[in-house]
Design a protein around this nucleic acid. Sequence first.
DNA 1: TATTATTATATAAAAATGTTATATAAATAG
DNA 2: CTATTTATATAACATTTTTATATAATAATA
Lengths: 186, 186
Amino acid sequence: MPKQKITKEMVVEAAFMLAREGGLNRITVRDIAEKLSCSVQPIYSYCQNMDGLRKDVIKRSDSFIKEYIPAHIDKNDFFKSTGYAYIRLAVEEPNIFRMFVMNERENIHSLDELYLSETNPHVAEFIADTLQIDISDARRLHMNMLTYTIGLGTILANTTPGIPMEEIEGQLETAYQAFLKQITDS
Amino acid sequence: MPKQKITKEMVVEAAFMLAREGGLNRITVRDIAEKLSCSVQPIYSYCQNMDGLRKDVIKRSDSFIKEYIPAHIDKNDFFKSTGYAYIRLAVEEPNIFRMFVMNERENIHSLDELYLSETNPHVAEFIADTLQIDISDARRLHMNMLTYTIGLGTILANTTPGIPMEEIEGQLETAYQAFLKQITDS
DNA sequence: TATTATTATATAAAAATGTTATATAAATAG
DNA sequence: CTATTTATATAACATTTTTATATAATAATA
């Protein structure tokens, strides 16, 4: 058989780039085919249909974020800079952020399950170490910040022309102080 | 001319029902026409195109929420029950919640502008009165809870099979306490 | 090496959906 | 009563998704 020129990764990547520019429904088979200089067949051989491909693209956003966030983290202020990174993402890449929050979390029956499936356990450990607090408190703090950050990011990703970054960082800082105070005061 | 059988409201309502069931791209001209037992012409005479209609449907979600929230509020615990109501909406009507958060906020240059455009000023006044706090503190509290609620709702609207309502309410309560403590302690 | 089977891709037809053009008939205006 | 307007229907056209068929390059096998 002919040598494989088009891989599933190439298809998803091309679709992801289209969605990154103009949202999920900027994705069309023909535009992907043109981007890859091929016909529509390779695309359909790697996905059932366009809806399925869109789900793959949403997953691809997840992996994009898994690279983006660490690349924007300040090691000296690990925890807070993570929050800032998400917010920056929401502002700079609103379509990717939208896809990220649209990502279906399946088989989740409790907040704990959700927390475990969405976060890296080392983060809570790091927070507990740095702030000298209980690991369970660190998890609560982390989960609260994640929730707040997603809320702020969701708002910002749908707000034009946009809000100054400093103001947003101030807002995030205030929320952080509130959640932290709750823990240290009890 | 023939009597008008189809109004713009009917078109938007039919499209809204379709989106409520299966999301924005479940909306098709032909399905709307079938729901209304008419041809596609009345639809196109009330909207430029499908994208425009989708925007109207998103606005319709807003008005749905403006009815839904008050109907689920406990007058004795006005502020917190509002938060619960949003969360319940996210769980019971995930597609409507998604449309609500996807709603483009335009011409927003600061968090204050955002707050003013998204909230009813009476709410902050009510909070200030009830909790005996400054109006500016009440606004901060309100904005923080709105942000947190949107974050939690966004997560829940994309989580299956779902998390028990009591657990979620506990989470929201804890966040509320944290934001409140920050204000009363200073 | 020659032949066959497999399959990645292309081409093109079919199906679904969005949009526009034309036709019809019912209400209104004169 | 006639002409005009217009809400809707029908039907054509355009775009996109999806499927069917064809082709040719590689792998397998003899």
